[in-house]
């Protein structure tokens, strides 16, 4: 696997590594499929709204749009499986591998390693949340010092990671409604329908507002954050959003003296 330098310099500015190419590509597949799924799905949910029919017609109407939706859904499911394999692979390669090298391979250690993965919520997130409220409610002027993955980003991550296993299989079940009823009672289709459509609504209203606020609308990012393309975050953004990580990397890279305070 390609090694990415933690800090690169462009035009005299420092940029900090965040996402590898594989991760960035996963994200691109994720958002293109999700947007396509939303555009071919919501006209059905809101069929009697004035925009629904023209939008559905644009995707080929009732004969074609469902197939676009299903195939796109399959791609998203495949991405989900790939991603699961991807993190398991990284987990074994980086963490279990290290334990083996260190001859410390015990069940307890593996569990510990699992919970210390950067995406897994931990105690620090809880304190960060409190820090954030203190800051937002004017009790403190110190911004929370997030580490590599803030609790918000973990939420952003687990939204699709819990959403897809709910939406996807329910969608597949509705697709193969005939065959599925040979194994499950018919009322399960009612349940799949609610799971599919309401989880989709949650995803859509969340992504449109919360995620896009974080990467599009927010005054620092508007019109668009570039990290999803470049994989690197500017020093400014690192200081605002990942101060703990910033300090740590600067120290690791021997740039301790150049660390800028958050309230510079």
């Amino acid at each position: 696997m390609q090694r990415y330098p933690k800090i690169v310099r462009r035009n005299g500015k420092r940029y900090f590594f965040r996402f590898s190419l594989v991760q960035r590509m996963q994200h691109i597949i994720l958002f293109t499929t999700v947007i396509t799924l939303a555009l071919t799905g919501f006209p059905l949910r809101y069929y009697n709204q004035p925009w629904a029919k023209p939008l559905y017609e644009f995707f080929g109407g009732i004969d074609i749009a469902p197939w676009i939706h299903r195939i796109t859904g399959l791609i998203l499911l495949a991405l989900f499986l790939f991603h699961t394999g991807y993190w398991i692979y990284l987990f074994f390669k980086n963490r279990v591998g290290r334990l083996i090298r260190e001859k410390a391979l015990t069940v307890g250690n593996v569990i510990k390693e699992f919970f210390s993965m950067e995406m897994i919520p931990n105690k620090k997130d809880f304190y960060d949340l409190i820090d954030m409220f203190k800051y937002l409610l004017f009790f403190s002027s110190r911004r929370p010092h997030y580490d590599r993955i803030s609790w918000k980003e973990k939420f952003d991550y687990f939204a699709p990671y819990w959403g897809i296993p709910i939406l996807g299989p329910a969608g597949v079940a509705l697709w193969f409604r005939d065959e599925i009823t040979q194994y499950v009672p018919g009322i399960a289709l009612n349940a799949f329908y609610i799971m599919h459509t309401d989880e989709a609504l949650l995803a859509a209203i969340f992504l449109f507002f919360v995620h896009w606020y974080n990467v599009h609308y927010s005054p620092e990012k508007f019109p668009m954050a570039t990290v999803f393309l470049t994989g690197y975050l500017s020093e400014e953004e690192m200081i605002h959003e990942h101060y703990d990580e910033y300090e740590r990397i600067m120290k690791e890279e021997g740039l301790e003296l150049e660390i800028i305070s958050q309230n510079h």
Partner: peptide
């Protein structure tokens, strides 16, 4: 729903 099981009645 020609391929459906009896249980489709429960929908």
């Amino acid at each position: 729903h020609a391929n459906a099981g009896e249980q489709i009645a429960g929908y």
